[in-house]
Simulated assay, not measured.
Amino acid sequence: MTGEVIFTNANVVTPQGTIYGTVVTRGETIAAVEEGTVRTGGVCSCGGSMVRDVEGDYIIPGLIEMHTDHLETQFQPRPGVLWPSALAALVAHDTQVVGSGITTVLDSICCGQLNEGKMRHTLLSMSVAAIRDARSKNILRADHQMHLRCEICDPYVMEMFEPYADEAILRLVSLMDHTPGQRQFCDYAKYREYYKQEDWTDEQFSGLVEKLKGEQERNAAVNRSVILAMCHRRGIPVASHDDTTEEHVAEAVREGITISEFPTTAAAAAKSRELGLGIVMGAPNVVRGGSHSGNISARELAAQGLLDILSSDYVPASLLHGAFMLHQQVGIPLHEALATVTANPARLLSLHDRGEIATGKRADIVRVKLVDDVPVVRTVWRGGNRLL
């Protein structure tokens, strides 16, 4: 537990807009947000309070990441290479997450193997065990929770999902179908490129496509139904993944799904808005100026008011950068752009104690300096404790 900390001479991004002022934290909580400054010369202790002059930098809420595959890259940094220490891999991931300004992260772990052989099964069990262990030892700086990504066409998905369905930190489940020829991979060539099968003969690739379509026909409907029922009984939010058509979205709503992750077309995003689904797009899509799979541009959706949340997906640093680019490139007010990585995910995940610089919220605070229009994380605090 910390005492009183005063952040002053700051551009404070509040839910209503940006003010020049001061934020006061006491213990784990934001105690006050005020216009104006406290006189100080850098960092000093005044009457038992720690006063920090942030020199005009931004004070923003700690970022909330709801879908990142980055942990998997630490466990498996090269194809066929499994890092020998699961704890070390998780701590390395935690370091990069916090350095990116993320104070709450849903580690997104895949349930399903398909083209990955047994490696996905191993990564799942290792990841969950490492998160449990590290949380019990209180060695993680960010608040790590879980998001299970379920490949519904996979014959082994239930075997992988069921043991973890009652994890207390399971905050989100997404239903994925990466069968080539639909959703993310309407373009077969993009599927072939993504899974590094360009060197296959056309005959080999056609055989794989037929095999995967057969798995979809046999498994997708029943797995989807069972996983949805399990999540609804437990009150776990469910996301639909890579919606492409209006019918994909309508089906999701009929099934009680509340989030559309990475819709691939403007039509699917517009239908999601009409039917009340939260719309998630990738921050790398924003930073790069387009989708790596050739699908809809996140900037285009944002300009049409069809984006609620950004996810860093595979690059943690893209989350903050993407939010600032929504402001700089699309013209969205900064407080609304930053809400896509703070208040909006907090609301959809029922994390009501965080996500805003507001009195009574948890003191998850990030100091950000703009350098050549790039947001640079200077310091990070979670629950009143300095992490960086």
Score class of each variant (00 low, 15 high):
residue 283 A to T: 11
residue 151 E to D: 13
residue 304 Q to E: 14
residue 339 A to W: 12
residue 349 L to W: 04
residue 94 D to R: 03
residue 31 A to F: 07
residue 318 S to G: 05
residue 193 E to A: 14
residue 217 E to F: 01
residue 232 H to P: 01
residue 31 A to Y: 02
residue 288 R to V: 01
residue 304 Q to Y: 02
residue 360 G to V: 00
residue 3 G to H: 06
residue 123 L to N: 04
residue 5 V to T: 15
residue 255 E to H: 11
residue 33 V to E: 05
residue 39 R to Q: 15
residue 56 G to R: 05
residue 69 D to S: 08
residue 123 L to I: 13
residue 221 A to N: 08
residue 93 H to F: 12
residue 177 D to H: 00
residue 15 P to I: 12
residue 319 L to F: 11
residue 332 I to H: 08
residue 78 R to Q: 14
residue 152 I to Q: 01
residue 376 V to H: 12
residue 270 A to Q: 15
residue 284 P to Q: 09
residue 37 T to I: 14
residue 130 A to T: 05
residue 77 P to W: 00
residue 6 I to H: 00
residue 272 S to K: 06
residue 219 N to Y: 15
residue 251 E to G: 11
residue 141 R to P: 00
residue 367 R to D: 09
residue 187 D to T: 01
residue 321 H to E: 15
residue 67 H to A: 05
residue 61 P to F: 01
residue 236 I to D: 01
residue 196 K to A: 14
residue 5 V to P: 04
residue 154 D to V: 01
residue 312 S to L: 06
residue 374 V to W: 12
residue 234 R to W: 09
residue 359 T to R: 12
residue 327 H to G: 09
residue 14 T to P: 04
residue 326 L to Y: 02
residue 300 E to P: 02
residue 134 A to E: 10
residue 278 G to L: 12
residue 198 E to H: 07
residue 307 L to W: 08
residue 311 S to P: 03
residue 372 D to R: 12
residue 306 L to T: 02
residue 377 V to F: 10
residue 31 A to M: 11
residue 222 V to I: 14
residue 281 M to P: 13
residue 24 V to K: 04
residue 50 M to L: 15
residue 294 G to K: 11
residue 59 I to E: 06
residue 275 L to Y: 04
residue 150 C to G: 07
residue 147 H to T: 06
residue 180 P to L: 05
residue 380 V to C: 13
residue 4 E to Q: 14
residue 139 I to N: 06
residue 81 V to Y: 12
residue 248 H to P: 00
residue 239 A to Q: 02
residue 273 R to W: 01
residue 29 T to M: 10
residue 386 R to E: 14
residue 110 C to F: 14
residue 386 R to N: 13
residue 15 P to G: 03
residue 104 T to N: 03
residue 93 H to A: 07
residue 341 V to Q: 10
residue 223 N to H: 07
residue 361 K to T: 00
residue 54 V to S: 00
residue 282 G to A: 14
residue 191 Y to C: 06
residue 238 V to I: 11
residue 105 V to N: 00
residue 273 R to P: 02
residue 141 R to N: 04
residue 195 Y to L: 10
residue 148 L to C: 00
residue 202 D to P: 08
residue 242 D to A: 10
residue 230 M to F: 01
residue 215 E to P: 01
residue 234 R to D: 04
residue 183 R to L: 10
residue 331 G to L: 06
residue 331 G to F: 08
